[in-house]
């Protein structure tokens, strides 16, 4: 189980996370929804160690992650597929995958994992020697997911995987998310596309202004209301 408790993170004096607590069950897809500026990406960056929390704890299977460097967090089994994908544009697809396995030393295992990624994402295999910067948005998203999987994470974090992609590609990405989860990967997902997210998620949280304001399972709240709160926040929903 992955557990975040009472995390506070700030940019200078502005507190972006004001005491966030949530739990992600192993083997499940958990989704975090909320309007822009709610602090969703900040939470992801804090879990990944890019931002250091002011206080609070982040535990994976009981082991504390808060305060560790991003590299240590990767080696503990947490990988983030960042917002906007952030592939290495001047590296080939294959090199991007190799970079994803940077913390690993098992040469043979890395090679066989690259083959597994090619099997799962045939388009990456076709473009294995192409510079990642020349791929389409959807292909870059697949590469970003494959790169994160190369570290063999126990928990896969995904920040807005559907951002800027055409509807057909979005559907494909969500198929992949469901498939990865069926193979046993625990997924914690931030998503703008509440409709798609609620279709795959086992559990979801709503975040508004740096706080978790609702947690439940899809179907527990009418989708309309979730969407309204996810996009517009509670106050607009009441008024």
């Amino acid at each position: 189980m992955f557990e975040v408790s009472d995390i506070v993170a700030a940019y200078g004096k502005i507190e972006a996370l004001k005491g966030v607590s949530l739990k992600v069950e192993s083997g499940r897809i958990t989704c975090l929804l909320g309007p822009n500026g709610a602090g969703k990406t900040t939470l992801m960056m804090t879990i990944a160690g890019i931002l250091q929390p002011r206080r609070g704890s982040i535990r994976l299977e009981g082991a504390e992650l808060a305060g560790l460097s991003p590299a240590r967090i990767v080696s503990r089994g947490v990988a983030l597929v960042p917002e906007n994908r952030l592939v290495f544009p001047e590296m080939s697809v294959r090199e991007n995958l190799l970079a994803g396995a940077y913390q690993r030393r098992d040469r043979a295992g890395i090679d066989s994992d690259i083959e597994r990624m090619y099997a799962r994402f045939p388009r990456l295999k076709e473009r294995r020697d192409q510079m990642a910067g020349t791929l389409s948005g959807g292909e870059q998203q697949m590469l970003a997911v494959a790169r994160a999987l190369m570290s063999r994470p126990r928990l896969l974090l995904m920040d807005e995987p559907s951002l800027g992609l055409a509807p057909l590609i979005v559907a494909e990405i969500f198929d992949i998310i469901a498939e990865l989860n069926r193979d046993g990967t625990t997924i914690f997902l931030v998503e703008q596309n509440a409709h798609m997210a609620l279709k795959v998620a086992h559990q979801f949280f709503l975040m508004e202004q740096g706080r978790i304001t609702f947690s439940g399972t899809p179907g527990q709240l009418a989708e309309d209301e979730v969407i309204q709160r996810a996009y517009l926040g509670t106050r607009r929903a009441v008024g």
Binding site: P70, A71, A79, P82, V87, E90, Y102, Q103
Partner: peptide, 19 residues
């Protein structure tokens, strides 16, 4: 590889585990 990762994108270099 670590150097080129940092040159390509410093945040992504952190995320793949480059120290």
């Amino acid at each position: 590889l670590a150097l080129r990762a940092i040159i390509g994108n410093p945040v992504a270099a952190h995320l793949v585990g480059v120290d």
